Simulated scan of single mutants.
Amino acid sequence: MTDLAVPVVEPRGAGSRVVEPPARFRDLLASEWLRLWSLRSTGWSLLLSALAVIAFNVGTAWDHYRYWWQFGPKGRAEFVANEMALGDAFTGNASTVLILCAAAMGAVAVVGEYGSGMIRTSFAAVPARSALMSAKVLVVAVVQTLFGALVAGASFWLSQAVLSVRDAGLPITHPGALRIVVASALLAPVCAVTGMALGALLRRSAVSIVGSVLLLLFVPMVVSERRHLTAVLAHTTPLKAWQRLAAPGTFEQPYPWTAGGAWLVYALWAVGAAVVTVLVVRRRDQ
């Protein structure tokens, strides 16, 4: 008879281990997306922030609608000639609220894991820290971009609808209108990623949020634009960049700058903050 070769399966030794394949970047994106939306605070924070921002813009347009006839013929003519309806599309108060909310949510997205200790678990599961933080930055930036687009678009449509009753509203095709909407929408992800960078550096919720307020709001408000050196410093901040892009009509100041320069400030802050967020975890222990 011919002997049949029967394969022998050796039992797994006690010292053997299963080598898990490294996580793909799209898996990290899916994980961070689920992590962000698994928190109830995410939805509520976005909802309340959106209502506050839109309320400031629509409230300003409503005041102009309500007291329209009290402006007098000259005041009404100047309102239309100076394109002040674009100023109601996204107001300075609304930009302040947007900066605060976006920066705080960005900081909490990083600091929350440090506070709970989950960051150790995350780094143990994904030793590639840079990839993990890159996924976190990308998810937060996408969510904040969608959030910014929603509140900026809704604010423009509602405010101009209110003013159109007085024949003072402007369409999105009006020169400068689309730029205001886009600049206001992108202000959210720029500030959110900045908040993430501060959170990665400071690792304390309260300290990171206070740092965001000082950096994004206090500094540009106290730096004068009447002198060349301080004006250049002010122009490097996201708030001043937004003011340059959202200014209706002719932008006049002692040291004017271009819209292209303001867009560049947006880009440099977003990229710089993202790089800091990704690289700082490689230099420090969790």
Results as ranks from 00 to 15, higher is better:
residue 34 L to Q: 09
residue 266 Y to G: 03
residue 60 T to A: 12
residue 279 L to E: 12
residue 157 W to M: 07
residue 13 G to H: 11
residue 226 R to V: 14
residue 226 R to P: 00
residue 161 A to N: 06
residue 103 A to D: 06
residue 70 Q to R: 09
residue 90 F to N: 01
residue 39 L to A: 12
residue 143 V to L: 07
residue 285 D to M: 10
residue 34 L to C: 00
residue 83 E to T: 07
residue 65 Y to N: 01
residue 51 L to M: 11
residue 171 P to M: 11
residue 125 A to K: 05
residue 4 L to P: 01
residue 177 A to V: 05
residue 187 L to I: 07
residue 96 T to N: 01
residue 12 R to I: 14
residue 240 K to S: 07
residue 159 S to E: 05
residue 59 G to E: 08
residue 15 G to V: 14
residue 2 T to W: 09
residue 207 V to E: 11
residue 177 A to G: 01
residue 48 L to R: 00
residue 169 G to S: 05
residue 101 C to S: 15
residue 95 S to F: 09
residue 85 A to C: 08
residue 48 L to Y: 13
residue 196 M to R: 06
residue 205 S to V: 15
residue 21 P to V: 10
residue 130 S to Q: 07
residue 250 T to W: 02
residue 75 G to L: 13
residue 207 V to K: 00
residue 206 A to N: 07
residue 213 V to N: 03
residue 228 H to P: 01
residue 88 D to M: 15
residue 208 S to E: 08
residue 138 L to F: 06
residue 278 V to S: 01
residue 176 G to A: 10
residue 273 A to M: 11
residue 10 E to I: 10
residue 144 Q to K: 04
residue 145 T to I: 07
residue 211 G to D: 09
residue 197 A to W: 07
residue 188 A to G: 11
residue 37 W to D: 00
residue 81 A to P: 09
residue 50 A to I: 07
residue 173 T to N: 05
residue 136 K to D: 02
residue 171 P to A: 06
residue 127 P to K: 06
residue 125 A to L: 15
residue 62 W to E: 03
residue 91 T to F: 11
residue 133 M to I: 10
residue 188 A to N: 10
residue 106 G to N: 05
residue 125 A to E: 06
residue 129 R to H: 01
residue 45 S to W: 09
residue 230 T to Y: 08
residue 190 V to M: 02
residue 93 N to D: 12
residue 137 V to K: 06
residue 189 P to C: 11
residue 167 D to L: 10
residue 242 W to N: 06
residue 101 C to G: 14
residue 154 A to S: 12
residue 204 R to L: 15
residue 52 A to Y: 08
